[in-house]
Amino acid sequence: MTSTSHRTSRLGRKRSESLVAYGFISIPMALFLFLSVGIFIYAVYISTFDWGIMGPTKNIGLDNYRKAFSDPIFLKAIRNSVKYALLVVPIQSAIGLYLALLVNSKIKGSKFFRSAFYFPSIASSAAITTLFIFLMAPDGVFNGVLRFFGVDTANLFNQGAWLSDSRTALYSIIGLNAWTTSGTMMLFYLANLQTVDSQFAEAAVMDGATRRQVFWYITMPLLKPAHLFVVATGMIGALQLYDQAILAGGADGSPDYSLMTVVLYIYNACFRKFEFGYASAIGVILFVIIFSLTVLQKSLFGSAAWKGDN
């Protein structure tokens, strides 16, 4: 391919290929530049203003950011969102992987189990959360099951009020979302598992590797693209927790702001206090958090999958 005799035609081909490529990406890139990058810059601009319902009043520089970091409720929201993401992502990824391995093995009814496991992922969060609130109520089904196993729920430290006790509310939502999202994560792992060549594993077994060794040294590394995708999308999704928080804890993320998330805080700044500039500033901070975590996680997993195969 590097022979010099073809250089001119290769150059010509390169140029026409570039033109074609620009043709392909022109509209998508224009949309990205307009709907995401442009909007992002506009958000940064708005975030430097005292901006109410009727529009901007005055430029206040970085005051919105200063205000954010001196508001204890906002700091609590950040802590909640990060804590939630750091807990829910590994749990839902691990369950997703485990489920994928389960249904990927040649078993009877794997199709049924696959559908069943994905089931919670398909309904809307509004519907699921409503259901969940019912199940987790002090006299709901969950406590009924606990009582069946001999747990005296009325004398538990939270009296069985899982969602209305600040010590268990966030963990309950983590449980809910690990349950609903793991189905999606299972799908991504399944997709990757289909591409994994079973020869490697078989060869390893022939060499005397144990199942555990095969899993950790062969299967796990081969699933790297799925790990990357599952953790990246999971993290971004988790930091945007909103529907479940407002449905279970109301706009204040009650009790004791234990369900106050960054996004819920943005929502409140916008629609309860009409501080559009302030809301934009929080949005920018959220972006910075997501960006840093993604970069961190990228360096943890290595960057191979982010690059092309040239």
């Binding site: 709907l35 990058v37 958000a43 901006w51 971004i236 909103y242 559009f276 934009s280 092309g308």
Partner: peptide, 24 residues
């Protein structure tokens, strides 16, 4: 410019919808 543009696309993945709320 392919890698740069692709990096922009990846960057867009990280822009939360809620950041777009007000300007959008």
């Amino acid at each position: 410019g392919r890698d740069v543009l692709f990096f922009v696309v990846l960057g867009c993945m990280m822009i939360p919808d809620q950041l777009r709320l007000v300007p959008m």
